[in-house]
Nucleic acid binder design. Structure first.
Lengths: 339, 339
DNA sequence: CCCCTTCATGGAAACGTTTCCATTATCCCC
DNA sequence: GGGGATAATGGAAACGTTTCCATGAAGGGG
C-alpha cells in the first residue's frame, strides 16, 4: 500500500488515455471531452494521484515558490511582514520559503544561493548586507525586491519601505511640541546599513531650530543587552534628558526597563516614544506612544511588486508606505527639573 | 547576458568532460581526479552555474525541503517555534516552506495538499483540525510530525509538545498556595481540539480539595475581542474572584486590559497569571507571572524527529518538554475583600 | 609478463511533467 | 456530398539532474 506515489503514467494507463490527456486535465490547458475528464479524475482519485511539482517545475523552469529572507522571524515587525507576504503569495498560488539570516551577511548570502538553486520565482528580502549576490540573483533566474530596508549601492533593486523618515519626523515634532528640547535618541549601530532615522531626527530638530547635542545621540547594536546598555548610559550620563526617542522596539523596551530601574516616572520624569508599534506598547504602563510601520502592507506590496508588476518594478524609486503616529500616555509636557 | 541559467551540460562542454563527471564534482559522490575537479569548478564559476534543485529533486524524488504549518506566524509562540524549526533545518541542509492556516481546517487541508504536491521531505504542523489528510500525507510521500498540539484520533502521528498540563498545574498550585480559592479560568473555546489545560486546572483544584465553580471557568475563541469579552464578563459577573489564570497570552492580555479598565489593582485586587511567557509579560506593570513553554525547543525537536529519527518516530507517545514557572509581580497573597 | 583490482571517466536511461505536432473523427455550410 | 475548420487525442521530445554500467588505463603481485 505504501508504494510510490502514482505518476501521470499510472493515471493514464488506469484511465485508458495518453499521458498528454491527463496533463491537460490537470493543467487546465487544451481541450478534453467531459467524459474523458471524468474518467481521468476518477482514476486519479483512485490512485491518490497528485501532480509532482518537481516534474512540473523542471519542465516549466520555475518552482512556483518565492523566497523570503528576514533577520529574525521572532521579531514582531518581521513576523507581520512575513504574514503580509504569505497573504499575497496565497492569492497568487505561490508558496514561500522562509529563512532567517540573523543579521549575518554571509549567512544571508548562503540563503540567497540556496534559493537561486531552488529556482524560486523571486526573492523578497529585508536585507542584512551587501555580501549576497543580489544583482546576480535578480539576473540569473529570479527577481529580487527589498522590503522594509534598502541597501546602499543597489538602486536598481525595487523596494517597498515604510516612510521611516516621516515617522521619526512626526515623533520628533510631537516631542518638541510638548516642549522637550533635550531629547535623547537611541539609534542603530554605526555599521548599520541605513541611518535614515537618525538623519530624520537631526534634520527635524535643525528645522525646528533646536540644537542637536551629539552627546544625546547614541547607537546600539540590535540586541537586547546592547540596547539596555545604551539606554542606561544615556539616562545616567545625562539627568537633564526629558524625553527619549527610541528608533526601534528593542531600544524602546530598553528605555522602559531602564526608566523603571532608575525609578523615573513616565511621563512625569521622562517621556518615552518609539518607532514600531508592537503589541506590548499598549500593555505597558503607561502605554507607549509609538510610530506604527505598516509591516503587513509592506510584505504584501513587496510580494505584489515581485510577482504582479514585473513591468513597473523599480521604476520611480522605492515605494514608500506611510507610518502612523499612535499617541498614548508615555509622553507628557516638559517639566522644569527631572529630579 | 541574461541568457538562461547554465546547465550541467554547458559546464561539461566548457570543461571538456562528460556530464556525469560534473555531477560527481557537485554531488560529491564518486571519484574525480583533482585536476578534472579544478577544471570543472573553474568552468562552473565562469558560467555562473548553480545546480538546479528541480532536476536534482526530480531524479531523487524529494525536494530537500520541509513544510511547516502554523496557525499564525505573528503569534509569538508560533514565531519561536518557526525559529526552532529553521535552526534545525539549517543544520540538516533543508529549506522550510512556511504557511499559516489561521485556524481554518479547510485552509490547512489545502496547504497540506500543496506541500505533498511539492514532494516535501516532511511536514511539521501545529494543527488546526482533522480535515486535512494527515494520514495520507504521512503515507504518500512524506512524514508528519505535530508540534505544540496534537489532534485526537491520530495517535500514530508523532508529536512534540509542551507539558501543558504540568504548566497549568504549577500555576494553579502557585495561586492556590497564595491562598486563592476563587480562581477564574480563561480557557479555549469549546470547539478547540484539546482541553488539556482546562482539564489540568480542574484536576489540580480537585486534588487540592478546592471546589471548582463552573461559573468561574469561561471559554473564548482565540481572538482578541472574544478574549476581552470573556475576561470582562468574568470579572464583572464575579467581583469575588481574587485571581485569574489565563490559558494563553491573548487571554492574559485581555485580563490585564480588563483589570486596568475596571480599575483593579494588580495584584492587590486581583492576581493574574498566564500560560506563555511572551515578551510583554516582563514589560507590563506589574510584570506578569507566566508559565514559559519551550517553543523554540519544540520546533527544533519536531524537526529532528522528522528528519533525523525516522526509526524512533512515534514510538512511546508524544515527546513532552517541560515548562517553567516564571514568577514575577502580578500575583500576591489573598486579601479578604476585593472592593 | 599477465591477470586482477582499482580508479577515472563517459554514455545513456531514468525521474514526472508540459507541449508541440500529427492523426483521426466530427461537424457545418455551401 | 465534399472540403475545410475544429475538437479530441496520443506520441515523443524536451527540462536538468543522478546513477548504473561499460570502457580504458594504470598499477601490483605472483
Amino acid at each position: 500500500m505504501t508504494g510510490r506515489p502514482a505518476t501521470i503514467k499510472d493515471v493514464a494507463a488506469s484511465a485508458g488515455v495518453g499521458i498528454a490527456t491527463v496533463s491537460r486535465v490537470f493543467s487546465g490547458s487544451g481541450s478534453v471531452s467531459a467524459a474523458t475528464r471524468e474518467r481521468v479524475l476518477a482514476a486519479a482519485r483512485d490512485l491518490d494521484y497528485r501532480p509532482s511539482a518537481l516534474g512540473r517545475g523542471l519542465k516549466l523552469r520555475r518552482s512556483g515558490g518565492i523566497g523570503l529572507i528576514v533577520p529574525d522571524v521572532t521579531d514582531p515587525f518581521c513576523a507581520e511582514l512575513i504574514a503580509g507576504v504569505l497573504a499575497c503569495a496565497r492569492t497568487l498560488g505561490e508558496h514561500v520559503i522562509v529563512d532567517a539570516a540573523h543579521g549575518d551577511p554571509s549567512r544571508e548570502a548562503e540563503i540567497v544561493e540556496r534559493l537561486v538553486g531552488q529556482r524560486v520565482d523571486g526573492v523578497i528580502a529585508l536585507p542584512a548586507g551587501a555580501e549576497a549576490d543580489w544583482r546576480g540573483a535578480a539576473r540569473v533566474c529570479s527577481s529580487v525586491v527589498f522590503a522594509g530596508r534598502v541597501l546602499p549601492g543597489l538602486p536598481e533593486i525595487p523596494a517597498v519601505l515604510a516612510d521611516d523618515a516621516g515617522g521619526v519626523r512626526s515623533l520628533t515634532e510631537y516631542l518638541t511640541g510638548l516642549g522637550h528640547r533635550r531629547i535623547g535618541f537611541l539609534g542603530a549601530a554605526p555599521g548599520s546599513p541605513s541611518r535614515v532615522r537618525e538623519d530624520a531626527f537631526r534634520a527635524t530638530l535643525a528645522q525646528l531650530g533646536v540644537p542637536v547635542e551629539e552627546d544625546l545621540v547614541v547607537a546600539a547594536r540590535p540586541a537586547s543587552d546592547a540596547a539596555y546598555a545604551a539606554a542606561a548610559g544615556l539616562l545616567q550620563r545625562r539627568d537633564d534628558v526629558t524625553a527619549v526617542l527610541a528608533a526601534g522596539h528593542l531600544l524602546g523596551e530598553a528605555a522602559v526597563l531602564v526608566a523603571r530601574e532608575l525609578d523615573l516616572r513616565v511621563p512625569a520624569d521622562v517621556s518615552i516614544a518609539m518607532v514600531d508599534d508592537v503589541a506590548w506598547a499598549e500593555l505597558c504602563d503607561p502605554p507607549l506612544t509609538a510610530v506604527a510601520r505598516p509591516a503587513r502592507d509592506i510584505g504584501y506590496r513587496a510580494c505584489e511588486t515581485l510577482l504582479r508588476e514585473p513591468a513597473r518594478r523599480g521604476r520611480g524609486g522605492p515605494v514608500l508606505l506611510p507610518t502612523e503616529l499612535v499617541v498614548r500616555g508615555s509622553c507628557g509636557p516638559l517639566r522644569t527639573a527631572r529630579r
